[in-house]
């Protein structure tokens, strides 16, 4: 286990691996295996014949259309900044393309296994999209590397913010106006000449100051009341010691903080209301197990 917090908590129980990851669900294991299988194709040989890019804006539109054609629901571009790269890693590219796939929010009514299967399917799709997009850019003569669950050297949240997908929410995930936090990412870093998108703020950080729905529903009380500031952005730093007993040390998946976020109501009003009625009936801090 590479996560030192998780490792300490797992070993303290006498186990050698997280119960959640050890619980065998064949479909989910297959999704996880898929992004491991395609990991060697994250990078590759660059075509020595380079496509000349006279119009980066047109090229950006073309890349976004391609990513959408491959299955992405959101595509954004920004310059790769040092804060977006994992500490100790080197990513010698100028731009990063974020290509995200939305999860089907309706799964919340089908239980934690359905939510997990949807999340892992989405991750697998993101890995495929990023891998294919990177390959197509290399075929145009530019270096390009895919970043996904099978291998990544980039940080999702600062990229999401910079490409205009949304703002950081109290639950630690980025909130998008259409999809809430119910989406998963793949990225491609590249030197292909592109045009950047811009951050877009629509009141999330102010809303989260007063909302508290995710905090009230977290079975582990892992979402804090107070925030810290990172480059002027509010961050409610999740306490992993409280989160992991419910998200990693149980068989069932926990995604409650994302599921109960009111930013889901615009696109799924009836399902959100039904789900929150259920949460009220079982008790807001009850873990999902059904």
């Amino acid at each position: 286990m590479t996560d030192p917090v998780l490792a300490e908590m797992v070993y303290a129980t006498g186990a050698t691996e997280s119960r959640h990851y050890a619980a065998v669900k064949p479909t989910i294991q297959a999704y996880r295996a898929s992004w491991v299988t395609i990991a060697p194709r994250r990078d590759g040989v660059v075509n020595p014949q380079r496509t000349v890019v006279n119009d980066p804006a047109a090229m950006t539109a073309r890349i976004k259309a391609k990513a959408t054609e491959l299955g992405a629901d959101m595509v954004g571009v920004c310059r790769l900044q040092p804060d977006m790269i994992d500490l100790g890693s080197e990513v010698p590219h100028e731009f990063v393309i974020a290509a995200c796939v939305a999860e089907d929010y309706e799964k919340v009514m089908q239980g934690p296994d359905a939510v997990e299967e949807e999340a892992m399917w989405t991750y697998a799709r993101c890995a495929e999209i990023a891998t294919e997009l990177a390959a197509q850019i290399r075929a145009m003569g530019y270096p390009a590397r895919a970043h996904h669950n099978g291998g990544s050297e980039v940080q999702a949240i600062p990229i999401f913010y910079q490409v205009g997908f949304g703002e950081l929410g109290r639950h630690g995930s980025l909130i998008n106006e259409k999809y809430g936090a119910s989406f998963r990412p793949g990225f491609v870093t590249t030197d292909l000449p592109l045009v950047e998108d811009r951050p877009r703020e629509f009141g999330v950080q102010d809303f989260c100051m007063n909302c508290n729905v995710c905090q009230r529903n977290c079975p582990g009380d892992a979402i804090p009341q107070d925030y810290v500031l990172t480059h002027g952005i509010k961050r409610w730093l999740i306490d992993l010691e409280k989160c992991y007993p419910y998200s990693r040390l149980r068989d069932e998946y926990c995604h409650l903080c994302v599921d109960v976020c009111p930013y889901n109501v615009k696109s799924h009003p009836n399902t959100y209301k039904a789900f929150m009625k259920e949460r009220k009936q079982v008790g807001y801090k009850t873990p999902k197990t059904y």
Binding site: P4, V5, E8, V228, L229, T230, L237, D239, L240, E241
Partner: peptide, 27 residues
């Protein structure tokens, strides 16, 4: 577990929290 913040203090005095860490060694 310990709970520690790593703070970055820029030349202009701005303080930015890098993250929350669970051991001094990790921080």
């Amino acid at each position: 577990m310990e709970k520690l913040y790593v703070n970055e203090i820029r030349p202009d005095g701005e303080v930015s929290t890098v993250g929350l860490f669970y051991s001094r060694a990790e921080a």
